[in-house]
C-alpha cells in the first residue's frame, strides 16, 4: 500500500492500482452524501480531478495520482456514499487505474512515511 500527500491510498492488484481515500481524509470530510465517479476507459493525467466527493459540509475532489486509464469504478458508492465513512480503506475504494509502468508508484509514501506525514 502507498499513500499520497492528498490522503489517497494506492493498492496494487496485478497490473492495476486501486485508489481510495484514507481514514484520516474520510474523518476530515465528515459524512459523505454524494460521490461522482469517473467514466470507465477515461484516460487521465496525474493531478486531474477524477471524482467529486460531497460531504454534509463541503465538496472536494479526488485527483488522479498518476497517468493512466480508468478501468473500473465502485458503483456501490453512488447508491451508498456513506460507505466512504464506514470503510474508507476497504469496501469504499473509488476506482481502479491501469498504468503502463507500476514503478511510478515507488515515489509515494509507505504506510510508515504516511503516519509520519500525518504527524
Amino acid at each position: 500500500m502507498r499513500y499520497t500527500e492528498e490522503h489517497e491510498w494506492l493498492r496494487i492488484e496485478g497490473d492495476v492500482v486501486v485508489v481510495g481515500i484514507t481514514e484520516h481524509a474520510a474523518e476530515q470530510l465528515g459524512d459523505v452524501v454524494f460521490v461522482e465517479l469517473p467514466e470507465i476507459e477515461a484516460q487521465v493525467g496525474k493531478g486531474d480531478e477524477v471524482c467529486v466527493i460531497e460531504s454534509v459540509k463541503a465538496a472536494s475532489d479526488i485527483l488522479a495520482p498518476v497517468d493512466g486509464e480508468i478501468v473500473e469504478v465502485n458503483e456501490a458508492l453512488t447508491d451508498n456514499p456513506g460507505l466512504v465513512n464506514e470503510d474508507p480503506q476497504g469496501d469504499a475504494w473509488f476506482f481502479k487505474m491501469k498504468l503502463d509502468d507500476l514503478s511510478v508508484l515507488d515515489e509515494f509514501m509507505t504506510e510508515d512515511e504516511y503516519k509520519d506525514f500525518l504527524g
Binding site: 465528515g30 459524512d31 452524501v33 460531504s55 454534509v56 459540509k57
Partner: peptide, 12 residues
C-alpha cells in the same frame, strides 16, 4: 465548534 465526535449528520 463546527462539529463534535457525533458528526454533522447525527447531530442534526
Amino acid at each position: 465548534p463546527v462539529q463534535y465526535p457525533l458528526g454533522v449528520m447525527r447531530e442534526h
